[in-house]
Design a protein around this nucleic acid. Structure first.
Lengths: 229, 229
DNA sequence: CCAAAAGTGTTACTCCTACACCCATGT
DNA sequence: ACATGGGTGTAGGAGTAACACTTTTGG
């Protein structure tokens, strides 16, 4: 079946910048292209928006189809629509960004034949289309956003040490933070609660584990906060 | 001529929330619809994105066609694409917002037969489609943005008094500000320069006129600043 | 007992906030 | 001379930034 319109329409897609965190680096999830153009190059996961489907739903669907990731933090980023960005035709893409905790989500579950892999944001391959630009905008957004909304927590496991949280902020903001001031600031927000559990199997004093206060977290995500670490 | 695609595509439009400022209120520019659906209701200016045209260009073109406004500050806001937002078919719209100085731009120049008018944001009519929601998001964005980027200046004439600037901030943020602290803060940014001109024809001491320092303005627009008035 | 990271307070400084009076101009 | 808004300074408080040592644990 084919579809006819009175006027031509740009194609509409979604692309998703998925950020993850390992011990070393902030990472991005990329897909190896198997079709033209840019065959064999790495690209952001994404695909067409179906008629009758919201862009947000399309982003979640594509992400699950291509990488197996579901039920993660996902937000709209920006819409890119310069006519030259896809050599085949005019394709407008609604870019999103997502945050996942690598310990609790496994990307190998991908049902798609295509190759998916994590790359450090400090060591990225050349990307297809204008995806480098999209990634840059996503990173800028992430950096700006952690300063006034507690979204960074989405990248950590449910229970985490304050050092892990600090490390996350250091990776995102790309600078070192003072340990004492950081702890004071985080605890002052009351967004984390201490547990009675501790790290295991470390060759030094074990750090206390904390978890989010979901009620405070939700309130602060809506209202915003000032976290000028 | 008609156009056939293998898969159906959502329609793609732009809508623009144009903010203006008069002595009393923050205003929004609306268009009276003359076609179905929502005939006779007020709506945001906007229209279809042509193939081969960037969304940004489409927004500028539609704005000029419908209201005569050109060469104004315009930025992408958010893309709205819930399938139910237009009763005819699935229409995805890339919403933008624009800021204009009402003294230097005249909306009567509209070449389009449709009726265009300014409305106070405190006294809005019922809007077509999901345009009330778009307007709300635009207003939230404007409020958030004036705190860290000097975009509010776009709403003022080239030369203005500090009282006008303060009034603008009070209208956008919807609260009163302290005159002395506001002046200190603005002058400390060095984004405005004093001129040797003064207000005319006022029945009291004439206020000094200021203008932007364009170099500082551009730098701060890019880098952001903290303007927690 | 050594290595490694956890955990903890104080001080100086900067920035923000609150607040009231005199000045210049036109009528 | 009076009415109207223009223009100015200071003091107290809050928050930020800089900084070093002791504690706990495993090997």
């Amino acid at each position: 079946m084919s579809h006819t319109y009175r006027y031509p329409r740009p194609a509409l897609t979604v692309d998703i910048v998925v950020f993850g965190l390992d011990a070393e680096d902030l990472q991005v999830l990329l897909i190896e292209r198997d079709g033209k153009p840019f065959r064999g190059q790495w690209a952001l996961p994404g695909g067409f928006v179906d008629v009758g489907e919201s862009p947000d739903d399309a982003a979640r669907r594509e992400l699950e189809e291509e990488t197996g990731l579901s039920e993660i933090f996902l937000e709209q980023l920006y819409t890119f629509g310069n006519p030259g960005r896809d050599p085949r035709e005019h394709v407008v893409t609604i870019a999103h960004y997502a945050l996942v905790n690598l310990n609790e989500h496994d990307v190998k579950a991908s049902s798609d034949a295509r190759n998916a892999a994590w790359f450090s944001i400090n060591d990225l391959p050349k990307l297809a289309f204008d995806h480098s630009e999209i990634l840059k905008v996503a990173l800028d957004r992430l950096r700006a956003k952690v300063r006034y909304q507690p979204i960074g927590f989405e990248l950590l496991p449910k229970k985490f040490t304050l050092r892990q949280l600090q490390h996350l902020y250091e990776l995102i903001l790309d600078r070192e933070l003072d340990k004492r001031n950081f702890r004071k600031k985080v605890l002052a927000t009351e967004i984390v609660k201490e547990t009675n559990q501790f790290e295991k199997d470390v060759a030094h004093r074990a750090a206390r584990l904390y978890r989010f206060d979901q009620r405070k977290y939700d309130r602060m995500t809506k209202q915003g906060f000032n976290f000028e670490v």
